[in-house]
Amino acid sequence: MNVLITGASAGFGKALAERLVAQGHQVIGCARRLDKLNEMAETLGELFLPVVMDVSDTESIPQVMANLPKSFSQIDVLVNNAGLALGTEPAQKSELDDWMQMVNTNIKGLMALTHAVLPAMVERDKGYIINVGSIAGSWPYYGGNVYGATKAFVKQFSLNLRADLIGTQVRVTNLEPGNVAGTEFSNVRYHGDENKAAQVYEGFKTMTGEDIGDILLWLIESPAHINVNRLEVMPVAQTYNGLTIAKQNS
């Protein structure tokens, strides 16, 4: 089985790549940082193919796909894992560039790569697309503005893919994690402020990138006649809270 993973150089993507190779699957690991990918290739061996890809550069994706070696060219599973959140300010104080970068990566990049691999899956009547969404696509929170909106798109796009693929054996899942430590998510969100990033995970037991890697592997190796439409996962310490009310001082 050939599995293409975006955002493969860290976090969920790296954890999944390690698990897939251990199970004997071939992995096309895509990310922007070639040095990180090459480090993984040294450890994982010939089953791991490092590929430089910036999914936000959508025009480059067809050429990258066309240049894959023949033995890796058939994509059996696509894991759209590349994505990011930038900033925690309310909408009125946010940077427009941050908004645009989230849209370009989380939405446009995911669309372009899906568009590149889906027709061949339909032609073979076999394949699996796993989109890594977020609970932010369902549950709004302060400072989540455009990030949450991009993940809401991923959720609805995944469901609509399922609708379009009726009558085929191609599967689609939207995996929607909550709080996860051990990735670069918060480091990126806080623009490299390590102290603020660390505070996000203090004081409770959260999930890890390895936990999400295990879930992704379970999805990929689940029976081909079963489709998990959406899978929302959170640490036990995280749950829904009451609606917020801003009360006036009397």
Rank of each mutant, 00 (worst) to 15 (best):
K108P: 00
N160S: 15
D211K: 06
G133A: 11
G137R: 05
H115A: 14
T168G: 04
I212D: 04
L118G: 04
K93N: 13
S158W: 03
N104V: 00
G167W: 09
K93V: 01
N106H: 11
V170S: 04
V188S: 06
V172P: 01
G178W: 00
P177Q: 01
R162W: 04
N195C: 04
L217C: 08
V200L: 01
T88D: 12
G109Y: 06
L113G: 06
N104G: 07
H115V: 06
A152H: 10
D214Y: 15
R189T: 08
V117I: 06
I130F: 13
I215T: 14
M121N: 05
S94Y: 10
W139F: 14
K151P: 07
P140C: 09
Y128G: 00
N131S: 09
T168R: 04
D125F: 11
E194T: 14
Y190T: 02
V117R: 03
M100S: 05
V200S: 03
N104R: 15
I212G: 01
A120Y: 02
D214N: 13
G192F: 11
W139Q: 11
E194C: 00
T150F: 06
A91P: 00
F204A: 10
N104H: 15
T208F: 10
F153Y: 14
Y128T: 00
K205Y: 05
G137T: 09
L165F: 10
R124N: 12
E123W: 03
A116C: 14
L217S: 11
S94E: 02
Q101D: 11
A181T: 02
T88L: 07
G148R: 02
Y128S: 03
S158A: 12
G143W: 12
D193H: 10
G143I: 04
R189P: 00
K196E: 11
A149Q: 02
T208W: 13
T206H: 09
D193Y: 12
L161Q: 09
D193P: 00
T173P: 06
R189M: 15
N174I: 02
H191R: 12
I166H: 12
T206Y: 05
T173H: 07
V172C: 04
D98E: 11
N174T: 07
A136Q: 07
P90A: 10
T88W: 08
N160A: 13
V103S: 05
P90Q: 07
T206W: 08
N179Q: 03
D98K: 06
G87S: 11
E123N: 07
P140Q: 09
T208Y: 07
F204Y: 15
K205M: 13
Q169K: 15
